[in-house]
Each structure stands twice: as structure tokens, then as C-alpha cells.
Design a protein around this nucleic acid. Structure first.
Ligand SMILES: [Mn+2]
Ligand SMILES: [Mn+2]
Ligand SMILES: [Zn+2]
Ligand SMILES: [Zn+2]
Lengths: 156, 156
DNA sequence: TCTCCTATTGAGAATGGTTCTCATTAATAC
DNA sequence: GTATTAATGAGAACCATTCTCAATAGGAGA
């Protein structure tokens, strides 16, 4: 019985294969770290955790592979306001798709998915109109809310 | 008869005053550049244009003041995918508020404002629900669509 | 208009996240 | 196995942005 995690990893490996990318140890380890619950990590954090599993790993390799994984759609990258790009495993499925609440003060990120179907429908409709009007091929969207998290709100 | 531009600049000066910031020549010039039609410039581009008006201007001063203007709400900053932060004069009014279509290939930005009222209402409703549920004080939102502009779509 | 205080400036150095280089290693097709 | 070449690790390089610090100039008050 494959766990959710192993099946997600297998899908990732398959995708790498489709893109003619070799399934190297560093890639496995990086995907493994991204697959864990902690999300929204920056490259340095991913490097640190992956190094514990595979100590000879190099930081440049982490950057190179994150870039690759983003390019082939297995990973999402985004910014929150500090100057470190954040990464998280791509969540395309209807159950896990989500958007973000981003705290301007502590740069923490909250995933939310309530009414995400509403948002998705709404955005799809907008995309249809906009792409027609501007002859623009929309590939993905970004919707974020910025402000103060509950902690930071009370320590002003 | 004040033009739209001069009145917008006057409002900016007033705002600076309210925040007890001196109305220096560099600030005037930077605001003047931002107030021109070309939007979505990066710091270097703003520096270049402002230098033509005020040649002794320093790049650090541009960065410092852009930061200030963002902080007091006169300027918006955002990223498009190259590694240079973009800036544009804040457009809060109902007539000029807009969102962005961003080309992943050439990093150009298209302003759109059709159905922006719909979007705004929709987002406001979401903000209300989310801030209650997560005890999160939402201060602003970001909604962008990424893809390929009409030019880049045809040169793949 | 003059003076004083200090916010602001300009130049260049420093920072730090990310990318590049290059010799070495290892995945995979045959 | 062997050959091919994609991928790696280490460190240097890059470059947008921030910092430092002595010099300058707003603007409040006299
Ligand atoms: Mn997330
Ligand atoms: Mn715009
Ligand atoms: Zn916070
Ligand atoms: Zn384009």
C-alpha cells in the first residue's frame, strides 16, 4: 500500500523521466525534503535539511535542481518580502490547491483553501476574458493577501 | 488650471509633509519620473531617467527614497521574474486601480482594469472571510496572471 | 533673512542570495 | 562492462541592494 508521500514522489520521478532528466541522488533527496510537511522553505533551508540525508550535497546543486523542478512544474516558487525565494511542492489537485496569507512583519505564510473552488472559478472566468482581450496566453495565476498574522498583530 | 500630473504631485508632496519628510530635490525628481507614463520601471531605470534631470543624484538615494515612498503608500513595488524590483506610482482611485498580466518570457507587464470592480468586490469578500477565520489583518492583495504576451506567444 | 539642527545625500564599500566555471563523478543507453 | 555526457561539488564571480560616513541642505525657529 503506497503512502500518499511515496506515490507523490513516484509521480515526480516519472515526470523527471519524461523530461529526460536523470534520477540522481541529489534530486531524490531534494524532492524528499520538499515532500515533507514543512512548506515555504528557502533554498538555504532546503539545503540544510537535504544535507543531513546526503552530506556531500552542494548548495549550487540545490539551486540548480530547484530551478529545474520549477521549470517542469513539480515545484512552485514565490517571494514573501524577505530576499529569499521560497519553494513548495506543486499542489495542482483540487483537494490541495491553495493560496497564501503572507505576514509582512514576520514573513510567515499561511495556506488557505476554503472557498478555493470559488476563487478558482472566478479566476478561470477572468483568465478567459483577459486572454481573449489581450491575446495573452495565461499559464498560471498568483493571488496573495498581505498583512499581519495574529501574532504580529498583537505586538505592534 | 492644474494638470492631472501636477495635482498628483502636489498630493504626493502633501503626503511627504504629513510624514515629516523633507521635500528634497531628489524626492521631487524621483516622483516626477514615477509620475510619467512609463510604468513598471526598475530602480536602475528610474535612476537613469532621474539623473538626466538632476545629474548629481546617487543610486543609493533612489533606492532609499523608493523604499520610503513604498512605506508611506505613494508607490507600489512588485516583482515580475527578472531579479529587479519594479516600481509604479500608487493608483488607489477607482478609475486607475488595476492588476497585471506578466509575460514570463520578456517580463513585460500589461495593466488591465476591465471588470476590476468585480475583482475588487470579490477580493474584499474573501478578505473579510479570511481575516475573520485566521485572525489575520489583511492590508493589501496581489493578483497577477502569468503567461505569454502576444509577441512572445508567436515566437516560440 | 540668518542660524542651527539634523534629516538627507552621494560615493564607494560591503553584503548576500544566486549563478557560473570547471574538473570530476555517476546515470543510463547499448 | 563500456562509453557518453548529464549532473555534481567547491569555490569564485556576479550583481541588485544595503550600508557607512563625511558633507550637504531642508526648514523650524529666532
Ligand atoms: Mn503554500
Ligand atoms: Mn501597473
Ligand atoms: Zn507575522
Ligand atoms: Zn512577452
Amino acid at each position: 500500500m503506497p503512502t500518499e508521500t511515496t506515490s507523490r514522489l513516484n509521480l515526480s520521478y516519472e515526470r523527471l523521466n519524461n523530461y529526460c532528466c536523470r534520477l540522481t541522488r541529489p534530486r531524490q533527496v531534494i524532492l524528499d525534503v520538499l515532500d515533507k510537511v514543512d512548506r515555504h522553505l528557502n533554498a538555504e533551508q532546503i539545503y540544510k535539511r537535504a544535507s543531513e540525508i546526503y552530506p556531500t550535497l552542494g548548495l549550487a546543486t540545490v539551486y540548480r535542481n530547484l530551478e529545474l523542478l520549477v521549470r517542469i512544474g513539480l515545484v512552485w516558487k514565490f517571494d514573501v518580502g524577505d530576499d529569499k525565494t521560497r519553494y513548495e511542492i506543486a499542489q495542482w489537485s483540487r483537494e490541495t490547491h491553495h493560496h497564501h496569507l503572507i505576514c509582512k512583519k514576520c514573513n510567515s505564510v499561511i495556506d488557505y483553501s476554503e472557498s478555493i473552488d470559488n476563487e478558482r472559478d472566478f479566476l478561470r472566468e477572468r483568465e478567459k476574458n483577459l486572454s481573449r482581450k489581450y491575446n495573452f496566453k495565461i499559464e498560471n495565476h498568483c493571488i496573495d493577501f498581505f498583512g499581519l498574522c495574529s501574532k504580529c498583530k498583537n505586538t505592534d
